[in-house]
């Protein structure tokens, strides 16, 4: 599904991605761990074609959806409008638009924020914005969902909600790549975790093969 070969990206002479090679063959949740500046967000942005690689190749078969760290909801649109705007642009018929709206309402209901559908982003909490952003990225029917720091700025309870939400999305067959510096969160949710440091892959593990992946990953996370 995704084949990244020797990906390199430099900003002002600094290697942000340094010969990164990753293959993702089937659905499942891949966690990208690493400290700030390790290149995980850049890798996601390259996969979404928001950035281009300086070297190497990147093959991504399937439609991608992207969840931004700061959600990037459109502030002048209600939660419902945020979700249905893009699909309604391609679906011109009234019937299809009604179906989109019905689907969006169901999605908001399942995400527990049905009552907020006519609210503007500024009046939503971080967790509610997160849910709207998730619904918006799922409305384009992605094969692969790319999430950049989905728990950044969220409290513990909301983070737990996000874990179950993303897990339920993963169970529908949508492949996910989640970038986060939060190892606890990533080990709860991912089937596989890749740890990046200074643009290089340091560790690539399957979480089920480790008794305590957090402790294992922490050894590589910080300097000796």
């Amino acid at each position: 599904m995704i084949k990244i070969h020797n990906a390199c990206k430099r900003y002002s002479g600094v290697n942000v991605l340094d010969n990164v090679s990753i293959q993702v063959k089937k659905s499942g949740i891949l966690g990208l761990a690493g400290p700030s500046g390790s290149g995980k967000s850049t890798l996601l942005r390259c996969l979404q074609k928001l950035e281009t690689l300086d070297d190497g190749s990147l093959e991504c078969n399937g439609k991608t959806g992207f969840m931004f760290q700061d959600f990037q909801l459109f502030p002048h649109m209600t939660a419902l409008e945020n979700i249905v705007y893009a699909p309604n642009l391609s679906d011109r018929s009234a019937k299809r638009r009604r179906n989109n709206e019905k689907r969006a309402r169901e999605m908001l209901k399942n995400l527990g924020i049905e009552s907020k559908m006519y609210e503007y982003p500024e009046s939503l909490s971080g967790g509610q914005k997160q849910r709207v952003a998730l619904a918006r990225s799922l409305m384009v029917n992605p094969d692969i969902l790319l999430c950049d720091e989905p728990t950044s700025g969220l409290d513990v309870a909301t983070t737990m909600d996000v874990v179950s939400l993303l897990k339920s999305v993963g169970e529908t067959g949508v492949a996910m790549i989640i970038a986060s510096h939060d190892l606890d969160f990533l080990t709860k949710i991912s089937d596989r975790i890749i740890l990046l440091r200074e643009g290089k892959i340091v560790v690539d593990i399957k979480t089920e093969e480790h008794k305590n992946p957090v402790i294992y990953l922490k050894k590589y996370y910080v300097d000796d």
Binding site: F68, Y85, A86, R136
Partner: peptide, 21 residues
């Protein structure tokens, strides 16, 4: 924020509608 342009692009919104709406 630059992210508003990027969000529109990731959702496949054409340039004309991105600017207009």
């Amino acid at each position: 924020p630059k992210g508003q342009f990027e969000a529109a692009r990731t959702l496949g919104i054409p340039d004309f509608y991105m600017w207009k709406d």
